[in-house]
Design a protein around this nucleic acid. Sequence first.
RNA 1: CGGGGCGUGGCGCAGUCCGGUUAGCGCGCCUGGUUUGGGACCAGGAGGCCCCCGGUUCGAAUCCGGGCGCCCCGACCA
Length: 432
Amino acid sequence: MSKGITSRADDYAKWYTDIVQKADLADYSAVRGCMVIKPYGYAIWERMQAELDRMFKETGHVNAYFPLFIPQSFLAKEASHIEGFALECAVVTHSGLEKDPETGGLRPKGKLDEPLVVRPTSETIIWNTYKDWIKSWRDLPLLINQWANVVRWEMRTRLFLRTTEFLWQEGHTAHATAEEAEAEAHQMLEVYRTFAEDFMAVPVITGRKSDSEKFAGAETTYCIEAMMQDKKALQAGTSHYLGQNFAKAFECQFQNKNNELEYVYATSWGVSTRLIGALIMAHSDDKGLVLPPKLAPYPVVIIPIYRKDDEKETVLAAARTLKGSLEADRSLRDVRVKLDDREQYTPGYKFADWELRGAPIRVELGPRDVAAGQVVIVRRDTGVKQTVPVDQADELIVSLLGEIQSALFQKAHAFREQNMVPVDTYDEFKRV
RNA sequence: CGGGGCGUGGCGCAGUCCGGUUAGCGCGCCUGGUUUGGGACCAGGAGGCCCCCGGUUCGAAUCCGGGCGCCCCGACCA
């Protein structure tokens, strides 16, 4: 199979799906609208999770897990919430299967007394739980995040950008005052901004959604919006101030310091696997994926080059030594180094393959280099190639990784500044 | 839900208009050998309910009828 991908100029949508599939990130599945996230794509998600999870914990949050299924009646308790999500809900109505004597196939068996909705988001099941956890001002604030999958039956789907089932995190916090909840919503929006800009190298604009676009059930929805290479805005994350809407719907009250009963104030905030779509569309080119070093599964890939068996041994030994030295370097502690020692591919194939997969730095190491005590280092983003003594490789790689990370941000930022049209509300953004 | 496109070995396609040997090509896969500094090459080989159901016919991937599925563009949405 040819690994060539459609150019952006020819067909932007095709270019995007080509990258997703040919860079081995994800693929379509047997279920319409649902994708298989392949190991290389999932590795990017794990990098995102690791950094976001660290930031959530640094801001005082802990992880928990709530059920996938929500009793149908819960959804109805917050009027605008159900209005927003009703048409997207997958509903479970039966509990088993039995043989259908007429068709010979299977049919659902026991009908449930109350249908269960597969969560499109977890506010309702969580607030039904919080009402039992929160009795006193001493129980507040409650700062919880969960990593989960959710299902929204969208009419049309696109790999990573909008799938029927997707992975995300959703933070759900409870506070004693409106001010504190507002501050939390803003804090998490800033966490998202920091993550997008410092790790994804994607500049974002923070803002407030118009009433027509805000989260169903929120008082206010704040968001980060990123501009993609097709000059469209992509909503990359949202943070909602929910006021007392869910507390009232689920009768969640606490006694304040004045011995009065009061409804709890809430926030919720989330980012999803859509971020991977944003990452692709922000930096990649016609040769494939371009990943920022901080989120690349392998920021550094070593490609050994050899002809005969004795060369192979020498080169692989040198490559392993280099890998070990890079991994042992203090300043490279977090850098994941891949030695591509696959036997069935030639070096040329591997060069192209890792360009397609977006590895930020490629290290070429062949007999000539081993003999001369040098390595060849190539940047994915610029294609610039340099040869350095092997004992200087660590230092150069450290500085290059930093340079690439900031160069990607600068490039994306400059692009946005050139193409952005000021608008009053996000309604006016052309949306992806 | 409107519009468009497509269903043929794992993937990408040709063949369908105009029915007729054993359904073909490229990539990938397996075996052996030669290779390896930009997507290697040679030889041999495995792998098909031609989306499904019905009809026409001596004969259907191909014609007719009816389904189903998927992708792309829009509306909706993280």
